[in-house]
Design a binder for these strands. Structure first.
Length: 113
RNA sequence: AAGGUAAAUCGAAUAGUUGCCCUGACAGCAAUGUUGGGGAGGAAAGUCCGGACAUCUACCCGUCACUCACGAGUGACAGGUAAAUUGGUAGCGGGUAACGCCCGUCUGGAGUGAUCCACGAGGUGCGAGCAGAGACGCUUUGAAUAGAAAUGUUCAAAGGUUCCAUGCAAAUGGAAUAAUCUUCGAUAUAAGCUUAGGGUUUACCCUGAGCGAAGUUGAAGGGUGAAACGGCUAAAUCCUUACCUAGAUGCAAGGUCGUGUUCUGUGUUUUACGUAAAUACAGAAAGUGCCGCUCGAGGCUAUUAGUAAUAAUAGUCCCAGAUAAAUAACUAUUUCUGUCUGCCGAUGAGGCAGGCUCGACAGAAUCCGGCUUAUAGAUUUACCUUGAUA
RNA sequence: GGAGAGGUGGCUGAGUGGUCGAAAGCGGCACACUGCUAACGUGUUAACCUUUAACCGGGUUCCAGGGUUCAAAUCCCUGCCUCUCCG
């Protein structure tokens, strides 16, 4: 689990990022990025009912994504709000694949230092 | 030993590292830090029933305060109840806060058996079904139409009992009748089957008590013929009975100290008199903090009552409360599933070693009692059937 | 989280035990009209399986499965899916 200061929590902030953020994607990972004018980077996760109707699978994917983001948070630029959204695929994703794709998406967004 | 039935329990484990949510203690002015404790399920699911709890509606009773023309009225607080329609359940008895749930038992059905079952009030009506030549959605006739035909569809006419009501009448509407017995045959036994007879109803004929001026009047009786005379089945069509439940809405109920935004309305002030600005109050929208919120019809153990469901008593324990939503990730070992290789064995069953892969169904959201549905596998207990041994 | 409504031809949508494979509209196809097209008008048209050279014929199907009934789109139970409302 991420620390509280690195979490995107408020619905207001989410709406702002959805509206004004820039769009990046790699395979089954979608990013929305916007500057927030703060010292830290805040990350939110959006896994909808369309991804999987089962609550267990949605929670599982969210946990994996959180762990991956936590692992690589030090390598990312500061002062951004990011929303991570996985896209539905035919088969349930594997963790290593998810990590590669997320890193590639972050690279496209020029968020790495 | 093999196969089965029922009930119950578990549903990966251990260690290390890195994190998250709630919370106690200590240090600190505070931010925060140190340290201790706890952190998903049997279904958390479906939302199919039942409650608790909360607010609102109506009514009743009580207490207090105020008003009064002494009849009463108004307000506050606390408690209780919920007309009718609708709805549900259904052998009998019990349990429960309550239930459509659970337990016991009776009857019926399935099974060799342990056991299992969404079988269980009554029905004279409506509408159906079985059997039958025939049960009115019928029978007969005619016409039209579809078809090669069998046959079907539509329309019209006629036919076969009684009573009541309305109407001058044609007619319309409603309600019903009620009875079977003996015997021969048949059959595994029987029957709504079959033979004969009696009785009942009805039609015709004969006779003609009575009444009348007059008969198309006709009691009782006799003869001949005819007869749908018998009342089976279901109740998740419908009706009745008994019992139960039922005011409405649901924690997004509801409450509250606040807090800023935006909009609308009203009032006041200022003046550049404009549809401006400031300010106060009220309302609305979206957002947000706290309470409700987890100690409960609670778990565990023991005893007592009871066949049991369950209840009572005593002891003991505190066991998730998140809100873009915690309960996790990684590594190692073990276990488990599948598969591959090698060895033992007989090429089978099985066992040993090693490699790889996967980890049943599934994630709390106010809380409980049930039901239903999903679920790899493991364990325990009791019982049944078959076989073997003693 | 809680409360409710629905699922019927290609689409919309009526049908609450028998006359129903099923009203009506849109759509499709054919005919007619026109020099040609559109509109109007008339007729026709569900899908799948089986059989056939083809038509005809037979069977199954009203979200899925099970039950009640002589008979189910309709009544009862379970599941799946879709939609609406509640701060």
């Amino acid at each position: 689990m991420l620390a509280l200061e690195n979490r995107l929590v408020a619905g207001r902030d989410f709406n702002a990022v959805y509206k004004c953020g820039r769009f990046f994607s790699f395979e089954n990972i979608v990013l929305k990025v916007a500057k927030n004018g703060l010292e830290t980077t805040r990350v939110g996760f959006s896994v909808g009912l369309k991804f999987s109707p089962r609550a267990v699978e949605r929670n599982q994917v969210k946990r994996w994504l959180r762990e991956i983001v936590k692992k690589h948070l030090g390598e990312m630029k500061k002062g951004f709000d990011v929303i991570v959204m996985p896209k539905k695929e035919a088969t349930f994703p594997v963790r290593q694949k998810l990590e590669q794709n997320l890193l590639s998406a972050i690279l496209r967004g020029n968020l790495l230092i």
